[in-house]
């Protein structure tokens, strides 16, 4: 309810106030006084974006995959971006969404790691702690209406235990034996579930790589913001290992025979 009658609107009769001296007083404003208030933009939108991240549990630990593309809308802008990032000796964090927000996340995790190492108390951050920390950061930022526009998958292996969990710009978290972000959650997740659920303790590294490669290939065929250049990370008892960029073999000859798909002769 506005208790200032002068804010209720101008009198209907112009003769009453022909010179527009009404309203006389200003409505008091008690909010924060920021000269640049109009320039502060909290709610943003993702600009340079990465697409899906895939992750599975397998016999020896966790395996993750993400391509090397950072898109600028529909433009394939940066084609050599690493979206799988190691944190400490036990954890890999994979990101979809805004890449500058992801770089900021890498930065805060670097600062966190430094302060933890500086303590020299014999404690090390594992995937569980990194995930809890990131979920609190993401939830705090969404609560400020200034989100970090990412979907993150955090995978790791510490003290003989596998860990795989998700957190996104809303602070929503969950874990499962297969995870996928973005388009991957529609296209790759069903393939991953079929291949992995129930076989988490028997899948070999070789089988895991094959499943992820096949899923990345399906994504490359169907996700217009994906790239045929990708990396795979494994996190096992032996530590973190992130591969060099790999190339997806694809076949397009079938397109010739499909009308409306390849070049048309008539």
């Amino acid at each position: 309810m506005d208790h200032f009658p002068t804010n209720w609107g101008r009198p209907r009769n112009d003769a009453f106030d022909a010179y527009a001296t009404h309203p006389i007083h200003q409505r008091p404003y008690n909010g924060p006084k920021d000269t640049f208030a109009d320039g502060v933009q909290h709610t943003q939108q993702p600009i340079v974006t990465g697409t899906s991240v895939l992750a599975i549990k397998y016999k020896d630990g966790i395996m993750m995959a993400a391509d090397n593309l950072a898109s600028y809308g529909s433009l394939a802008r940066f084609k050599d971006v690493q979206r799988l990032h190691p944190v400490g000796q036990y954890t890999v964090i994979g990101a979809g969404g805004d890449m500058s927000d992801f770089q900021y996340i890498q930065h805060i995790l670097e600062e966190l790691s430094i302060s933890e190492i500086s303590a020299q108390d014999g404690h090390e951050l594992g995937p569980v702690e990194i995930h809890e920390y990131m979920s609190q950061v993401m939830y705090a930022r969404r609560s400020k209406m200034d989100p970090l526009w990412n979907s993150l998958i955090i995978g790791g292996f510490k003290d003989g235990k596998r860990f795989l969990s998700y957190v996104d710009l809303l602070g929503t978290t969950y874990s499962a034996s297969t995870l996928a972000t973005g388009y991957g959650s529609y296209i790759a997740q069903p393939l991953l579930r079929k291949a992995v659920e129930g076989y988490e303790d028997t899948l070999t590294e070789e089988q895991g790589r094959k499943i992820l490669e096949d899923s990345m290939r399906v994504l490359f065929y169907r996700d217009a913001r994906s790239l045929n250049k990708y990396q795979i990370a494994t996190i096992t008892g032996a530590g973190v290992s992130i591969s060099d960029s790999l190339h997806l073999e694809t076949t397009w000859s079938f397109a010739e025979g499909i009308r409306g798909y390849g070049a048309q002769t008539q």
Partner: peptide, 30 residues
């Protein structure tokens, strides 16, 4: 989309109190 098949919504608070939360999961967990 099913995000996960196992995310508990019911939590034991004490030996005589149990709380169930439903709605927006991030808010619920917090």
């Amino acid at each position: 989309s099913i995000q996960t098949r196992y995310a508990p919504k019911v939590f034991r608070l004490t030996d005589r109190a149990v709380l169930a939360v439903n709605g927006f999961a991030a808010d619920g967990n917090m």
